[in-house]
Simulated assay, not measured.
Amino acid sequence: MANASRFQFIKSQHVPTLTVLQAAIKDFSYDRHAHEEFAFGVTLSGRQDFFSGGQFHKSPPGNVILFNPEEVHDGQPGGKHALDYLMVYAHPDQVKPLFADALGREHATDFRSNQTLIQDAQLRHAILELARLVTSQTGSCIDQENALYRVIERTVQLGGISQPSPVTNRPDTLLRLAKEYIHAHLESDMSLDDICQAAHLSKYHFLRLFRQHYGITPHQYVINCRINAARTALDVGAPLNEVALRFGFADLSHFNRRFKRIYGMTPHQYQRDIAR
């Protein structure tokens, strides 16, 4: 059935980086991927089944789903009924000052929720209200900023880990070097050997360590980062063919397939959505 699944992205007209996804899924499954943003979701109807944080989750209607930045996950409908849900995406740079304020700190801080699947009416209502303001294009800038702050404030109240300067052990440091290399060379034809050398690890050790830490292979991570970078380029109106070639896709058809496995729609459909 051609229209069994529907996806729509709506960007805030007031708050930079704030985007809402409205999705109704019947015959679609996301590949494992990760976003640069915080993702605050609510399951509206049906059941949302997904992998994240090394385990599988089932989210019935009314539950909140929270993904930290770069937290690998997938997703698909569970049970016999279609899945209807929404997600609000906010970039860490946008919300760091809000987390600092909610934590009572003077400076921006890195915050990560320690919960993925949350049953909390207050957080659910805050997310739904923020999504309503963005999707209906109502309210002023201060209305949307205040709604976003209420989401952040409740997230902090529910618990997490906050650290102004993350302390990392040696594997984390080496993997960070690999990720930094990948992000710096998204437009280049990088090899696995190149990434391993940047991380100062043997190929076997690197592959095992990377998958153990992130739940996906380095190749999957590279594709994921290229798709996220391509989405940013699409946001500012870059031509589709140019974006596809810039980020290493063989052609527009290849780009379309990869993009749709993460965002549920083709790059053209996404660019059309956010231009409204």
Rank of each mutant, 00 (worst) to 15 (best):
237 G>S: 10
83 L>M: 10
251 D>E: 07
47 R>T: 08
29 S>T: 15
249 F>V: 13
90 A>C: 11
228 N>F: 00
180 E>D: 15
114 N>Y: 04
160 G>P: 08
206 F>H: 14
219 H>S: 13
55 Q>M: 09
171 P>K: 08
228 N>C: 01
61 P>T: 04
139 G>V: 04
201 L>I: 02
153 E>A: 14
244 A>G: 12
138 T>Q: 10
1 M>N: 15
218 P>L: 04
269 Q>R: 09
191 S>G: 08
193 D>S: 12
232 T>E: 11
15 V>P: 03
224 N>T: 00
3 N>G: 15
7 F>Q: 00
1 M>Q: 10
62 G>R: 10
129 E>P: 04
99 F>Q: 08
74 D>R: 00
272 R>D: 12
28 F>V: 02
199 A>H: 11
102 A>K: 10
113 S>E: 05
51 F>D: 12
164 P>F: 05
162 S>F: 04
270 Y>K: 01
246 R>E: 14
42 V>S: 03
185 H>D: 10
248 G>Y: 09
105 R>M: 05
251 D>A: 08
249 F>E: 11
164 P>G: 05
210 F>T: 00
91 H>C: 01
211 R>I: 03
24 A>I: 10
232 T>L: 15
176 R>P: 01
44 L>F: 01
51 F>M: 13
43 T>H: 09
268 H>F: 07
50 F>G: 01
230 A>D: 04
251 D>N: 15
234 L>M: 06
151 V>R: 07
166 P>C: 07
203 K>G: 05
116 T>F: 02
158 L>T: 06
17 T>D: 01
242 E>A: 13
125 H>Q: 05
155 T>F: 08
149 Y>A: 12
61 P>V: 03
55 Q>I: 09
109 T>R: 01
120 D>T: 07
31 D>S: 12
202 S>K: 10
269 Q>G: 11
271 Q>I: 07
259 F>N: 02
147 A>T: 05
192 L>A: 07
93 D>W: 03
27 D>A: 09
190 M>C: 11
68 N>Y: 01
93 D>S: 15
236 V>C: 03
225 C>V: 02
219 H>L: 07
141 C>I: 08
60 P>G: 15
251 D>Y: 13
184 A>G: 05
20 V>L: 01
78 G>S: 11
185 H>V: 10
129 E>T: 11
9 F>D: 01
252 L>C: 14
237 G>T: 06
110 D>L: 14
248 G>V: 07
225 C>H: 08
24 A>T: 13
69 P>Q: 00
50 F>H: 04
24 A>Y: 09
113 S>N: 12
232 T>Y: 09
